[in-house]
Design a protein around this nucleic acid. Structure first.
Lengths: 125, 125
DNA sequence: AGAGGCACTTACCTACGGGTGAGTACCCGA
DNA sequence: TCGGGTACTCACCCGTAGGTAAGTGCCTCT
């Protein structure tokens, strides 16, 4: 498979973890799923202002393949798919917590702006 | 400058931290510097098998700009430059520890190979 | 004399991460 | 009947991260 490269030999654990989190939206997806428990595709899309559907799906599929998210499909009239974190996904999020704190502190130091996850702050630029 | 984009608005702390760690060798440089304290350019290059000089310098410069590493130049006959972590660099490494553990556990789960980066260097010393 | 180490710099090139936009099959509310 | 929502797939395009290779100035070792 084309995505099978994400299993190559690693230098260390950080390397292996980064491989799984690498991707513009991966960490945000993790965050979103962690905070809401279960989210449908369109809910995720709305929760991450600026994502393209293509990348959302691609990331979701990769994360499913990596055992981070669970994908539940309901064969219903209007399609319904629910995404949630697996235990590995949850543990990854926990492991990311300290990094998140460091990042928040850094944002304070350099005075970076923060995009609120709400729809109010539509993707600018 | 071209590297000034690494300050854009972020969604959350993880986003901000990832921005600084993003780059094929950044986390390895952090690791290397953390474990050896002070390293010269050529030592780092040898410690990271596969890195190109261009990328090593580029990453080092960006990390210096981000306040993660300190660059000490000695105006000597054979050029001598020493790189070390600043306090921010050290704290980032500490924040990355739990992620590293998660990654190590994942390596065990998926049976990924590990590149012995520092085995040769430490054994030789 | 020549090779090789140090710490870079510069030019060039390619793979791929990610964006845009359209299409699909079905259904619901106005 | 039209527009909009659900969850995608597919084709195409572009920027850039990162690799390769060569060059620089000075010094030491063989």
């Amino acid at each position: 498979m084309a995505t099978a490269a994400r299993r190559g030999p690693y230098f260390c654990g950080i390397d292996a973890a980064m491989d799984v989190v690498a991707g513009k939206w991966k960490s945000l997806i993790l965050w979103e799923l962690h905070h809401h428990g279960i989210r449908r595709f369109a809910e995720l899309r709305r929760g991450l202002p600026g994502v393209s559907e293509k990348m959302l799906i691609q990331h979701l599929r990769e994360m499913e393949e990596d055992g981070l998210v669970h994908r539940e499909v309901y064969r219903e009239v209007p399609p319904k798919v629910e995404y949630s974190l697996t235990e590995h996904g949850v543990s990854l999020n926990v492991a990311l917590a300290s990094l998140g704190e460091w990042g928040t502190a850094r944002m304070g130091r350099i005075g970076a702006e923060k995009i609120s996850g709400d729809v109010a702050a539509t993707a600018r630029r």
